[in-house]
Each structure stands twice: as structure tokens, then as C-alpha cells.
């Protein structure tokens, strides 16, 4: 079943044509990865999906509902989580308050507590930092917090924008393990990564973006063998 689908989506930053008609399909239970170099339009794709910018043409449907003209806060409530590029931690809110913000629209305290505990079970480190300001956390801890916060609304599909950026290899491993675990428990994942090898190691399928267009789309296994991908993104000759 298709959870999220983009059909011929165009996006502009002023006069810059950032997405030139991309079509992406994400099915229930999948990990789909968008790979591509800097400026290819990966983050723009996520920003367009979550309503932070609106497509100039094309349709975006989430669970069969057209979301291309909806505001971000409404899209979030429709079941789409977005862990933004650069993590977007509120620096002057504590870890606990950051998590509570993630569940802003939930009024059931028991449910909030339950989901917070789930986040701690994934990232025990967060529990030790509970009353610390978000801005004082290390990069890895901020990424953990961003993911835990993104789960507070129990989204059906979670979009992650460069979760490995600026992290030590051991932390990258940890974060990707968690993403795999989340997926095993039923969360659909749309993953944007520059670290193509890492992304393809956990993804089921992938799309390769180049200057706003999708140039290849295939299963992760096939992409790893694709000469173009190997040359451009996996550093093989």
C-alpha cells in the first residue's frame, strides 16, 4: 500500500527551479532512501512534502489524501513525522520540554509519558539529560533527541534528513541501527542521506537525485551494483 506518493512535483525557491518534476513512491513498511550530492534537491523534497514550502506543480498524497496545499502543522497531524536537516532542536528548551513539544497536539498525559519512555528505551542517554537545555547536548545526543521527538506523535511515516551529518562513525552506526529497529516495528521511513553506502545498507529501495531530477530508481541491492551510483556516490571506480 502506498503511504506517500509524489507525482511530477516541481518546487521553486524564487526563480530557482529546485525540483524539476520528481515522482517518488513510498510503500507501507519500507525504508526508501533518497541519495544525491549537495544541492541535488534532497532536503527540498522533504521540505516540500512536509509543507514548509509548497510545490509549484504536481501532487503529493499521504495515505491517499492530497497534502500539497496543507500547512506543515496539519500535515504532521495527518501522520507524517519530519526530523529536519540540522536536527532543529530548541536550544533553550530542556530535553524534556523538547520532547513535550513533539507531542504538542497530544492532550493525554499518559500517552505522552508512554511515548517518552519509548524514546528513552531507544536512547537511554536522553533520560540522563532530561533537564538539560537542548543547546548543551552534543551533536549525537541532539540527533537522538530529534528522532525521539519526531516519534512523539507516533507517525506512520518518518522522514529523516541527513541523520548521519557531523556524527562520529560509531554514532552513525547506532542511529542507523535505531532506524532499522523503528522500521522493524512498523514505521515507514523516508531517508535522505549523503552517506549513500550507509543509506543503501538499510534501505529497501532508493532514488538518486541529480540537480532536481531523479536519474535512477531501483532496489537498494541493484543500486549498489549500478555503475553510476558506484562511481558518483560510493567512491568506486
Amino acid at each position: 500500500m502506498s503511504v506517500l506518493s509524489l507525482a511530477n512535483v516541481h518546487s521553486h525557491y524564487g526563480h530557482i527551479h529546485a525540483l524539476k518534476g520528481i515522482s517518488v513512491e513510498v510503500n507501507e513498511g519500507e525504508i526508501v532512501s533518497l541519495i544525491g550530492s549537495n544541492g541535488a534537491g534532497k532536503s527540498t523534497t522533504l521540505r516540500t512534502i512536509s509543507g514548509m514550502m509548497h510545490p509549484s506543480a504536481g501532487a503529493i498524497t499521504l495515505y491517499g489524501k492530497d497534502i500539497s496545499k496543507m500547512e506543515p502543522h496539519a500535515i504532521v497531524l495527518a501522520g507524517l513525522g519530519h526530523v529536519p536537516e540540522g536536527r532543529g532542536i530548541f536550544p533553550k528548551l530542556t530535553v524534556k520540554e523538547n520532547l513535550e513539544m513533539g507531542a504538542f497536539t497530544v492532550t493525554d498525559h499518559r500517552l505522552i509519558q508512554e511515548r517518552m519512555e519509548y524514546g528513552f528505551s531507544l536512547f537511554p542517554r536522553l533520560k540522563e539529560r532530561l533537564s538539560q537545555y537542548g543547546g548543551t547536548l552534543s551533536g549525537g545526543e541532539q540527533q537522538m533527541l530529534a528522532i525521539a521527538r519526531g516519534l512523539m506523535l507516533d507517525p506512520g511515516i518518518l522522514m529523516l534528513d541527513e541523520p548521519s551529518m557531523g556524527l562520529a562513525p560509531v554514532l552513525v552506526e547506532l542511529i542507523f541501527d535505531i532506524i532499522k529497529t523503528l522500521n522493524d516495528k512498523g514505521t515507514t521511513i523516508l531517508l535522505v542521506e549523503q552517506n549513500a553506502l550507509m543509506a543503501l545498507s538499510i534501505a529497501h529501495r532508493g532514488y538518486v537525485l541529480q540537480t532536481g531530477e531523479i536519474v535512477v530508481s531501483d532496489t537498494a541491492e541493484n543500486l549498489k551494483k549500478n555503475p553510476l551510483v558506484q562511481k558518483a556516490y560510493l567512491g568506486m571506480d
Partner: peptide, 11 residues
């Protein structure tokens, strides 16, 4: 503190 991220929290 961060308007775009706040909107991603459903605010």
C-alpha cells in the same frame, strides 16, 4: 527559538 521546526511539531 525555531519557527520552521515548531511547525513540524504540529504547532
Amino acid at each position: 527559538q525555531d519557527r520552521p521546526t515548531a511547525s513540524l511539531m504540529g504547532i
